[in-house]
């Protein structure tokens, strides 16, 4: 178990190679408890691969990664018990009702029946989905589905929740509402690790890392990154970093 002083996510020289191709080159960083950590990078920069290693879905080729105090290579089962995961592709079952989806994930994480019932009532109230509880998830609008998927990912109160491009395909206002849920979770002490394409989302994070070609090129609070790169917004920071790479290539 982690103590409060120990970082919830800690990596050192974390590397993943697929044959001759190196997807992640020795990245090292730490994420503190309750932090909202933005994990940015262009497509193919290695974000997803890094995230899969942290979730225990993929074994690192080299380096160390500890999540919630457990080594991802040696104790993937313990890691999985302490994390929640929401994928960019939709992860709820459209042919099950809202209630059934919640019950399923509660069951998968070994929650007791009463605990599931209490949590379900709480989540439905929080999302104002009381009247839709017995509707099929497939019939809900996308924005609601995403909020529900997030609630499912943190249903078992994990220490860390990994969000892989959680808000694809919705407008900024709906994204903003989604982020209110993220703040709520972080306040309860859940660490949020989020990848995104949207730079307005990057501004919402406590700290942001930007990956280019399998390496972390920048890591700091959004404000300091803007100062460092002399940029007006995260948008510009990102473009400057990626341009450096293209000029070098």
């Amino acid at each position: 178990m982690t103590t409060d002083s120990e970082p919830v996510i800690y990596t050192e020289g974390l590397t993943k190679r697929f044959g001759a191709f190196t997807a992640v080159r020795g990245i090292s960083f730490a994420v503190e408890r309750g932090e909202i950590f933005g994990f940015l990078g262009a497509n193919g920069a290695g974000k997803t691969t890094a995230m899969r290693m942290l979730c225990g879905l993929s074994r690192p080729t080299a380096g160390i990664a500890r999540v919630a105090g457990y080594d991802v290579a040696r104790q993937p089962e313990q890691v999985k018990r302490c994390i929640g995961y929401m994928s960019q592709r939709f992860s709820l079952y459209g042919d099950l009702t809202v209630r059934e989806n919640l019950k399923l994930y509660g069951g998968i994480y070994g929650m007791s029946r009463t605990h599931i019932r209490q949590k379900t009532a709480h989540v439905l109230q929080e999302l104002r989905l009381d009247h839709e509880a017995d509707k099929l998830v497939g019939d809900l609008p996308l924005g609601w589905k995403q909020k529900l998927a997030f609630s499912v990912a943190i249903f078992h109160e994990p220490q860390v929740v990994f969000l892989d491009e959680p808000t694809g395909g919705v407008d900024p206002l709906t994204r903003r509402r989604f982020w209110e849920l993220i703040y709520g979770a972080a306040e309860r002490g859940i660490t949020v690790f989020v990848t995104t394409h949207y730079m307005d989302e990057a501004e919402y994070c406590d700290r942001v890392s930007i990956m280019v070609d399998g390496e972390i090129r920048a890591l700091d609070t959004p404000r300091r990154l803007r100062q460092q790169f002399d940029a007006a917004g995260m948008d510009e920071v990102f473009r400057k970093l990626v341009r450096v790479r293209q000029a070098g290539a």
Binding site: E77, F90, S91
Partner: peptide
């Protein structure tokens, strides 16, 4: 296809 396999694999379920 749904993408739910990833989520299931990231759960404690073997």
């Amino acid at each position: 296809e749904l993408g739910s396999m990833e989520v299931l694999l990231a759960s404690p379920m073997p």
